[in-house]
């Protein structure tokens, strides 16, 4: 157990939607109820928080007793499914206020859900959602491209990335292509 003084907040990883959608592997470091739930992304890094910027295209209010909002956030590679429930009232109210379409920045926790048929649904439990501008979206694409390329370069050199290779059989060329295509959609 690490002492309080050295507590470090988990960084928010940058990831494109098409990689996020492939995420299947999650684990806990120990059995303690409070220990964080991590996922390992196909390009080989653990994460329990992500930062994404994209276009909110749709939001829906759901549930009667336990109200929550669902939203779709699009980046150049695909779609993130966002959830904001009453256990995080701030994020829920932020989302309730935003009219789609809008550029939004979302900080949240990766969430994996396996259906009875064995399908894995990947979504983001939002901690916060704010309206941003197009420039912020472009900066995020560059940032995420850089982080993804760094991870690809480090593939096989860290325990987490070897685990990713084992779990996903990650093919770096596919992800390089995704990064390239995402960057191509940003206007010079």
């Amino acid at each position: 157990m690490r002492p309080q003084a050295t507590f470090e907040r988990e960084p928010a990883r940058r990831i494109f939607a098409s990689e996020f959608r492939e995420t299947r592997y999650q684990f806990k470091e120990d059995d303690d109820e409070k220990s964080p739930n991590y996922v390992i992304f196909p390009t080989g890094i653990r994460s329990n928080r992500i930062f994404i910027v994209g276009t909110l295209t749709e939001k829906q209010r759901q549930g009667d007793q336990n109200i929550f909002y669902r939203g779709r956030v699009i980046d150049p590679t695909g779609t993130f499914f966002i959830m904001a429930g009453s256990y995080r009232p701030e994020a829920m109210q932020q989302l309730a206020r935003i009219e789609a379409p809008a550029f939004v920045a979302v900080v949240g926790k990766p969430n994996l859900f396996v259906t009875q048929e064995g399908n894995c649904l990947v979504s983001v439990n939002a901690e916060s959602i704010t309206v941003v501008d197009r420039e912020t979206r472009d900066l995020w694409v560059l940032d995420t491209a850089r982080e993804t390329l760094d991870r690809l370069d480090a593939l096989g050199t860290t325990a987490d990335s070897r685990k990713a290779q084992e779990e996903y059989g990650t093919q770096p060329e596919i992800y390089r292509k995704i990064v390239y295509d995402a960057l191509s959609q940003v206007q010079m």
């Binding site: 560059l142 491209a145 850089r146 390089r176 990064v179 390239y180 191509s184 940003v186 010079m188």
Partner: peptide, 15 residues
């Protein structure tokens, strides 16, 4: 701020 040269450099790196 957004810098086009960074975009170019990343495109080269990815492509």
């Amino acid at each position: 701020t957004f810098k086009p040269e960074e975009l170019a450099a990343l495109l080269n790196r990815a492509g």
